[in-house]
C-alpha cells in the first residue's frame, strides 16, 4: 500500500499542493483528476522525490518510498521529452532495464526478451528499429508504456498518458492497466478527462491544490465537487 500523508509541495516558491493525504491499494487503478494548474504533476513529482517536499511523508509497504525507487515506474508527460533525440524505439524500451542491468554491464538475454514482449504488448514490435521522431503521438506514448512495463515495477505513475493520443492507444493503455491490476500492481494515472473513461478506474482522486474528494465515481463526481473545482476556473475565465 502507498501511503501519502499531509504532503505539501512548492513549485517556484508558491505552495502548489497542500495537506494531501491518501492511500493507493495494490490491484487498483486510480485516476488523479483536476483542472490545469491544480498541482497534479507537482504532487506526483513530490511523491517520487523528483522535487523537494515541504512537509509530509510517503511510504510504500510502511517504509519510505525514497529507499525503494527500484519498485517504481514513472512515465513523464510526453511534452517533457525531446522526440528528436537520436534513439530507436527498442533502445528507449531497453532504458526500462537499466536498474536491473546495473552499472558497467550490458543488458542480459532476459532483458532483451522482456523488451521484446513489452514491444509486442503495446503493438510497437514492427516499429522497433524506427527513430522515435518518426512516430505519431500515440505511438510515442505506447513506447513509454512499453518502457514502464519493461521495468517490472510494482508501482506505476502515468502523467497525462491520454493527452493527444488516438483511440487505439487509449484502448491499449486501459487494457494494460487492467492486466497490471490483475497482477496486483498499484497504478496512478493523471488525467483531466471527465468523460466516459472514468468508468475504467477503480478509484478517483480530485485535486485542486488540496484533495477535494476521493472514492468511487459516484462519490467524487458530484455537482458540488465539480462546482468547487471547476466553478472557480470558469469564473476566472469569465
Amino acid at each position: 500500500m502507498l501511503e501519502v500523508r499531509n504532503l505539501a509541495v512548492s513549485y517556484r516558491e508558491t505552495e502548489a499542493v497542500r495537506n494531501v493525504s491518501f492511500c493507493l491499494q495494490p490491484g487498483e487503478v486510480t485516476a488523479l483528476l483536476g483542472p490545469n494548474g491544480a498541482g497534479k504533476s507537482t504532487l506526483v513529482q513530490g511523491i517520487l522525490g523528483l522535487i523537494p517536499i515541504d512537509r509530509g511523508s510517503v511510504k510504500w509497504q510502511h517504509r519510505s518510498l525514497k529507499d525503494q525507487l527500484k519498485k517504481i515506474a514513472y512515465v513523464p508527460q510526453r511534452t517533457q521529452i525531446d522526440w528528436d533525440y537520436p534513439i530507436t524505439v527498442q533502445n528507449v524500451v531497453m532504458m526500462g532495464r537499466i536498474r536491473a542491468t546495473g552499472w558497467f554491464r550490458s543488458p542480459s538475454r532476459r532483458s532483451r526478451e522482456i523488451v521484446n514482449t513489452a514491444l509486442q504488448r503495446v503493438e510497437m514490435w514492427e516499429y522497433r528499429q524506427r527513430q522515435i521522431r518518426e512516430l505519431s503521438g500515440g505511438q510515442q506514448q505506447r513506447v513509454f508504456l512499453a518502457r514502464a512495463l519493461a521495468q517490472e515495477a510494482d508501482l506505476f505513475f502515468f502523467d497525462e498518458p491520454f493527452a493527444g493520443v488516438d483511440r487505439k492507444t487509449e484502448e491499449i493503455l486501459f487494457n494494460v492497466f487492467d492486466e497490471l491490476k490483475e497482477k496486483g500492481k498499484t497504478i496512478l494515472v493523471i488525467s483531466h478527462d471527465l468523460g466516459e473513461t472514468l468508468d475504467r478506474y477503480d478509484r478517483l482522486l480530485l485535486l485542486d491544490k488540496e484533495l477535494i474528494a476521493s472514492g468511487s465515481k459516484q462519490e467524487v463526481i458530484t455537482a458540488e465537487n465539480l462546482r468547487k473545482v471547476y466553478g472557480r476556473h470558469l469564473q476566472s475565465m469569465a
Binding site: 513529482q45 525507487l69 514513472y74 513523464p76 517533457q80 533502445n91 532504458m95
Partner: peptide, 13 residues
C-alpha cells in the same frame, strides 16, 4: 543516454 534523453525519468529511477 537515459539522463540526457529523459532527465526526470532518470531521477525517478
Amino acid at each position: 543516454q537515459f539522463y540526457t534523453f529523459d532527465p526526470l525519468g532518470a531521477r525517478a529511477i
